[in-house]
Computed example of a mutant assay.
Amino acid sequence: METQSNKSEKRNKIIYWIFTLWLALGMISTAAVQLLKNKDEVENFTSLGYPAYLMTIIGVWKILGVIAVLIPKYPLLKEWAYAGFFFVMSGAIISHLASDHNSSKIFASLLLLVLTLISYYFRPADRKVGFGNNNVL
C-alpha cells in the first residue's frame, strides 16, 4: 500500500523531471541559436547593448549548466547551474525591460526563469546540497 508521503514524493519527482527536461530543452535550443550566431538573435542581443561575443560565452555556459543539472550526483554543481540559469534569465528580462522591448521578447526569458524555479523547487533530496551529503561537488 502506497502511503501519502510516497504518493507526494512520486508526484514531485514527476513534476521535477517534466519541468527539468523542458528547461534543458529550452536552454539547449537557445544556446544553439546563440552559438550559431543566428542573425535575428545577434540583432536582438546587440540591441540590448551587449557585444555579440557574449553570446558564445552564455551559450557555452547554458550547455554546461544543462549537463550539470541532468547528471546524477554533484549537488553543489547543480546549485551553481541553477544560480547561473537564474542570473542569465533574470538579467535577460531586466535587459529587455530596460530597453523597452515588447512582451514577446521577454516571454522566452520569463518562461525559462519559471522553469528554472520550478525545477529547482521540486528537485529530489539526492540532488540538493545538505549537511549530511558527502558528495557535495
Rank of each mutant, 00 (worst) to 15 (best):
E41Y: 10
T30D: 08
L35N: 05
M89N: 14
D126P: 06
G91R: 01
I15L: 11
N6C: 06
I14M: 09
Y74G: 00
L21G: 15
Y121M: 10
F85D: 02
W22L: 15
L77V: 15
A68R: 04
I94G: 00
G26Q: 05
M89I: 09
I28K: 00
W80T: 13
A125G: 04
R11Q: 10
S103M: 11
T3E: 02
T46H: 04
T20V: 05
L97Q: 05
L35Q: 02
L21Y: 09
Y53M: 11
N44S: 15
Y53R: 08
P124L: 07
V69L: 11
K13G: 12
P75R: 00
I57K: 02
I14C: 02
Y53S: 13
G59E: 00
Q4M: 14
M1P: 15
W17T: 13
I94C: 04
W22A: 15
S99I: 10
V33L: 14
T20C: 13
S8C: 09
V42F: 05
L35P: 06
W17M: 14
E9V: 04
V136Q: 13
G130D: 07
A81E: 01
A52I: 07
I18P: 05
S29N: 03
A52T: 09
G84Q: 00
S103I: 13
M89W: 00
A68W: 03
M27H: 07
R123M: 06
L76Y: 08
G130C: 06
N38Y: 07
T116H: 01
I93M: 07
S109C: 04
H101N: 14
A108V: 15
R123N: 06
D126Y: 12
L70M: 11
E9I: 08
P124S: 08
V69F: 06
L70N: 03
K37Y: 12
A81Q: 03
F122M: 05
L70E: 01
G65P: 11
G59C: 03
V114R: 00
F86A: 15
M55V: 10
I18Q: 02
L64R: 01
S119W: 02
I118N: 01
A125D: 13
F131L: 13
L23A: 05
L25H: 08
M89L: 08
V88C: 01
A68I: 02
K39R: 14
S119N: 04
V136A: 05
E9W: 07
L23I: 00
K62V: 03
F85P: 00
G132C: 04
L112T: 05
L113E: 02
M89D: 11
G26W: 07
A108W: 00
M55E: 01
I18F: 14
K10I: 05
K73Q: 11
V42K: 09
K105M: 11
A81S: 13
N135I: 02
K39D: 12
K128W: 09
T20M: 14
L115N: 01
L23W: 02
K128Y: 06
Q4V: 12
A31N: 03
Y50E: 11
T3Y: 03
H96G: 02
Q4I: 12
Y74H: 11
L35I: 12
L70V: 08
A24K: 06
S8H: 10
F45E: 00
S95G: 13
T30E: 07
Y50Q: 13
I15G: 02
I14W: 10
S104G: 08
S99W: 08
P124I: 05
I67W: 09
P51C: 09
N133S: 05
P75L: 06
E43L: 13
G91N: 03
I58S: 08
F131A: 04
F86I: 14
